[in-house]
Simulated scan of single mutants.
Amino acid sequence: MFDVVLLTLGSERDAPGGGCGSGGACCGGADDRADGATTEDRCETPRVPVLACADAFTARGARVETVTARSDAEIDEVLARLDGPPRPDGLTWPDPDSKTRLVVATASDAQLRAVVRRLVRRYAPPPSRRPDDLAANRTVPDLPAIGVLPLDPARSTAQRDLAAQLGLPRDPVAVATAVLDGTARRLDLLRNDGGSVTLDGALLGAADDGGRPLHWRGRVEVDDAVLTDGEDLLVACAIGNAGGYARLDDVALLGAPDPTDGLVEVAVAVPVTTRSRWGRRRVRLEVRRARGRAVSVLPREGKVPFLDDGAEGELGRKRSWWTEPGAWAVWTV
């Protein structure tokens, strides 16, 4: 028999004087917003899918508990149930044979990212205590698999959230079936030196109120390849683990990002002015792409707005992302 925890992220707006902007779990926590980022997730989470999923688990004989976490500390209390037995080295490690299943009810990819970020914080050993049984290409062990319950299926499908990209079930009963009878699909994880993680991808750049792109400059490197040295004007830079940021309007930025290949795909869009044979000026976007294990972005002038798994922020200093192959997992049929 499995113990199932159905975790919903609330916010401090549920408490007197609180609000989503105050750094509650709905927003991924204050340390998940780099360089003054602000996140506006939908904090009012529908109860109907959660109750339907809980009923489906109960009908299968599972013991179910629903929890609403409004802070990182409350998320951590839930994740502690996934801990393995004490290790001789004293590290906190996930239990690979755990009979506890975690299902995250998500209103956005940023909420799912908030839970995975806390998993990384819990189980990643400090560099000075790196154990011998940790894979050479990883800084975290295999994180426990997560069941994903989208709370707004119609809206999420239209926006191609991560669950839709991965082909995960969206119906509450189907989610319960996947968690109890399915398999754990291991996926790559992007960690960054700001202390957070990326599940889907990031898009750097913005547009003005009229929808016109705002140009910026920055040095972008993928492993040893330099996509731009900081002299080019850029419209956007896409960092893809999955395919959520693969297009910019009608322009294909990323080729075929794969969250299971151990690589990050990166693209920059550079406006190039050309002249026709009749002397007319035209601007087209030149897209430069590269794939590798790590990417760094160094803004040259001021701060660059970005979206990272749907969370908004501004990048004002160098930021590096690197791939953790197969580090996290989802339950799927």
Rank of each mutant, 00 (worst) to 15 (best):
I239A: 02
I239M: 01
I239D: 00
N241I: 07
G244L: 04
G244V: 03
Y245W: 06
Y245R: 06
R247T: 12
R247Q: 13
R247L: 07
D249K: 11
D249I: 04
D250C: 01
D250M: 02
V251D: 09
V251H: 09
V251I: 15
V251W: 09
A252S: 14
A256T: 15
P257C: 09
P259V: 05
T260V: 15
G262Y: 10
L263N: 11
L263R: 15
V264N: 07
V264C: 04
V264S: 01
V264E: 03
V264L: 07
E265W: 01
A269N: 01
A269C: 01
A269K: 00
V270F: 01
V270D: 02
V272Y: 06
V272R: 14
T273G: 00
T274M: 12
T274G: 12
T274K: 12
S276F: 05
S276N: 11
R277T: 13
R277Y: 10
R277D: 13
R277A: 14
G279F: 00
G279H: 00
R280S: 03
R281I: 09
R281F: 05
R284L: 06
L285Q: 10
L285P: 04
L285G: 03
L285W: 03
E286S: 13
E286W: 05
V287C: 01
R288L: 10
A290M: 06
A290E: 07
R291G: 10
R291H: 12
G292M: 06
R293G: 03
A294K: 11
V295C: 11
S296G: 15
S296W: 08
V297Q: 10
V297A: 13
L298A: 14
P299H: 04
R300D: 09
E301A: 14
G302R: 04
G302M: 06
K303G: 07
K303P: 11
K303D: 15
V304G: 02
P305T: 10
P305R: 08
A311E: 15
G313Q: 08
E314N: 10
E314L: 12
E314P: 00
L315N: 13
R317I: 05
R317T: 15
